[in-house]
Design a binder for these strands. Structure first.
Lengths: 125, 125
DNA sequence: CCAAAACCTGACGTTGACGTCAGAGGCAAG
DNA sequence: CTTGCCTCTGACGTCAACGTCAGGTTTTGG
């Protein structure tokens, strides 16, 4: 899935990306500012994105939800853009994975505690 | 588990609570300011906590990790402190539970995507 | 052709959970 | 008594991911 420079992919403006991914226009500009997105520009200066940018933004949202920062995502991005690999980055990936796994486990624990309380207060009002 | 006013439980100072729960002293004071903790005071004004405060703080950390705010936790606290129940609070509990469940699912998705990338870059360096 | 909608660049504001610093007491050990 | 660690109350600082406002240009639909 390395970038295929097909002759003329349909490009979309920032509003469509935002709506498509369910975020604000401001957020998309912010991602670009953080180096997560790159946009072509129309002659008048408007940003033009490839359509897969929408999926990309959705992916960012997932990573944010997983507790990654923009900086961290930017550090990991080369993984998604090229086939290139280096040991340090693989270690980073695994570290993040473990962090998220731990977080999932914690959340599951919290969920269980909430369920406890719910069943108690429901059966014993 | 309603509060048992046992004659003289061993009380601990803020530093012990913090170390015990793995948070900063500042954090503990913050929790008190948000109405999550109540402390007795020694004659000289130092905060004195019951030992179960440590578990309580750990629980707060879980809830924070689950995305609850201090305010939200404070609203739900009566559940843990009394046997009293009202329908609105039960609804809140269930709402939070569902939110967390959704979050867990999202995280699991993110985790799967990371795993994909990891196996790809590992088997195909 | 013209108004509404969309986009642009700054740049300051917001929110939550603390960090940090200042200045002043309090407490057990030697 | 004094040294060293703990605690106190303000109060300002931080960081991330945007929100929001100002003032101006561009694109689109009727």
């Amino acid at each position: 899935m390395t970038v295929t420079e097909s002759a003329s992919e349909r490009l979309v403006r920032i509003g469509e990306v935002a709506r498509g991914a369910g975020v604000s226009v401001r957020a998309v500009r912010y991602y670009e500012q953080q180096g997560l997105l790159v946009a072509e520009r129309s002659p008048s200066g408007q940003r033009l994105y490839r359509q897969d940018t929408i999926a990309r933004v959705r992916f960012f949202q997932q990573m944010y939800a997983a507790g990654l920062t923009s900086r961290r995502i930017a550090e990991l991005l080369p993984r998604w853009n090229s086939g290139h690999t280096d040991a340090e980055q693989r270690a980073m990936l695994r570290a993040e994975r473990d962090r998220i796994q731990a977080k999932v486990d914690d959340l599951q624990t919290a969920l269980d505690r909430l369920d406890e309380v719910i069943t108690i207060t429901d059966t014993h009002p």
